[in-house]
């Protein structure tokens, strides 16, 4: 009972929307300060515990593909091994909003055969005067795509905590109800409660990875 559920999340969006700032804000103090560490040893993801209900904590692994975005075939494999993601745009940058659908399409294509739960995040909401995307438009898009919407600001920490917590809670419910199943060879969800992995019956004839295409 000591082990916890672990979810792997990704953060997607155009390169200037502030994904890294959002991650830094959320994991503040947990990122091994590069000032004090050897750059060659570190972590590949940020990691943080989130309490989704009293006494129930989930460990989040947050993947950051920072710097590698251009290596498309690499970043694509990150999608498949994530159970959820924040789809971030910048409310002061209309283009980044228009690209949300592209990101979603791309992610959906590449997570197959697994599923991924997304949440739409309108970032930099502290810059109200420069807003180029209204809350209504964003809410419409998110409900059309079956996502929740939240507006955040890493600068003043608005809703940063909430965005991750809400997404985590939703994923937790889906896992609990069996709508998301934990599978061998998939890094999206690792459970600390279910005795490790749910194996399918025809284990012997499976390809090297479980594939439900």
């Amino acid at each position: 009972r000591q082990t916890r559920d672990r979810f792997r999340l990704i953060v997607l969006g155009d390169s200037t929307v502030g994904k890294s700032c959002l991650l830094h804000r959320f994991t503040e103090g947990r990122f091994p300060g590069p000032l004090h560490s050897d750059p060659t040893v570190g972590v590949d993801f940020f990691s943080r515990l989130v309490e989704i209900e009293p006494g129930k904590r989930v460990k989040l692994q947050l993947w950051d593909t920072a710097g590698q975005e251009r290596f498309r075939s690499i970043t694509r494999s990150y999608y498949r091994n994530s159970v959820g993601g924040l789809l971030v745009f910048d409310i002061t940058n209309r283009r980044s909003f228009e690209h949300v659908k592209d990101w979603l399409e791309e992610a959906k294509m590449h997570v197959q055969p697994f599923q991924i739960v997304f949440m739409l995040v309108g970032h930099k909401c502290d810059l109200v005067s420069q807003r180029e995307v209204t809350r209504e438009e964003a809410e419409k898009l998110s409900s059309d795509c079956g996502m929740k919407y939240i507006e955040t600001s890493a600068k003043d920490a608005t809703n940063v905590e909430e965005s991750f917590t809400i997404l985590t809670r939703d994923i937790y419910e889906l896992v609990k109800n069996g709508e998301i199943s934990i599978q061998d060879g998939w890094e999206g969800v690792k459970s600390g409660f279910v005795p490790n992995v749910v194996h399918s019956s025809e284990e012997a004839v499976k390809p090297r990875r479980q594939c439900i295409c």
Binding site: S20, F31, L35, P39, A66, G67
Partner: peptide, 16 residues
């Protein structure tokens, strides 16, 4: 693999 170094650089640049 160049991407590994680019990620390192991104970490250092943004975190420091």
């Amino acid at each position: 693999y160049l991407g590994m170094y680019l990620t390192d650089l991104a970490f250092i640049e943004e975190g420091t």
